[in-house]
Design a protein around this nucleic acid. Structure first.
Length: 288
DNA sequence: TATACGTGGTA
DNA sequence: TTACCAAGTAT
């Protein structure tokens, strides 16, 4: 049996019971989950996704909410610009697509914050269409099982898409199943750090196994520092703004970071990004 | 193509 | 404890 069939069979038995995979989840629910899951672990997304689906069950519901509410509901998920882009995407869907999330990859990619991965994930998981979904998990699985490498190298967008497309059966339902199964395999078995090859359904046909599990030789992706960076400072400032029901005085933000120059620069960048507003009285708040 | 962009769990 | 890692996107 070949790799696509093996992962599909495995997935049918071993899939995690994630809330956005339940029958009845709308494409809107899938879109929200994909935004939240960008660079963010499943465990942290689950409770927030449930809250959002209850509070904003349709795109137009989120579109009508003030940005401040959206950012507070986003909480500590990280990269709050995603929340803003999801809000903008909801507005676009409500206004230009009749409150229905598009199924077409090009229409999806035209939405704010929706890139190559998210567009295809919505097509596949929201609409059950044949659409090659390439995320970090899938790239790692393909690098190992197909190419026999220890890990995925730098992204090669076109080639990666073609690699995955070649694994998908011709029919929509079968292809969508392979897509979600490849992701799941990379997430829980073919992991970055300590792959559980003993539990892998593809073990017997894995090119990496057959090659003797050679070490990864390509360039190492350098991990981005965080302590002391603008990202940390912006996070501190956003934490202050989220935590206050009222606009905050400048002094409250000053207390969040000692380096005045860096702090001011970051505050300005938050305003530029639409994540914060300066009021006429000099106080600061989340955007209306 | 490389870099900026949050946060917290794990080894 | 430091370092890595987590369903990416925009510039």
């Amino acid at each position: 049996m070949h790799l696509p069939d093996l992962v599909s069979r495995w997935y049918r038995v071993n899939a995690r019971d994630l809330p956005w995979r339940r029958p009845g989840t709308t494409p809107w629910g899938v879109l929200v989950s994909e935004f939240m899951l960008q660079q963010t672990p499943v465990a942290r997304v689950e409770p927030i996704w449930r809250e959002w689906m209850e509070r904003w069950p349709r795109p137009s519901d989120l579109a009508a909410a003030p940005r401040a509410d959206v950012l507070r509901a986003w909480g500590r998920l990280g990269y709050p610009r995603r929340a803003l882009r999801l809000h903008e995407a909801a507005q676009a869907v409500a206004e230009r697509h009749g409150d229905v999330v598009p199924a077409d990859v090009d229409a999806l990619e035209a939405l704010p914050g929706v890139g190559s991965y998210t567009a295809r994930a919505v097509a596949a998981f929201g609409y059950g269409l044949r659409s090659p979904v390439v995320d970090t998990n899938v790239r790692r699985v393909v690098a190992r099982a197909v190419h026999g490498a220890g890990d995925a190298g730098p992204a090669r967008v076109r080639a990666d898409l073609a690699d995955v497309d070649a694994l998908l059966p011709p029919d929509d339902a079968g292809a969508a199943l392979v897509s979600v199964a490849l992701m799941e395999l990379g997430a829980v078995v073919c992991t970055a750090r300590a792959p559980r090859c003993g539990a892998c359904p593809v073990h017997a046909v894995c090119a990496w196994q057959l090659a003797g599990r050679p070490d990864y030789t390509g360039p190492r992706r350098q991990v981005q520092a965080f302590a002391g960076t603008d990202r940390q400072v912006r996070g501190r400032l956003m934490e202050v703004l989220r935590g206050s029901p009222e606009p905050v005085e400048r002094a409250a933000l000053d207390a969040a970071w000692a380096d005045a120059g860096q702090r001011d620069r970051c505050l300005d960048s938050l305003v530029v990004d639409g994540l914060a507003e300066r009021l006429d009285d000099g106080r600061f708040a989340l955007p209306a």
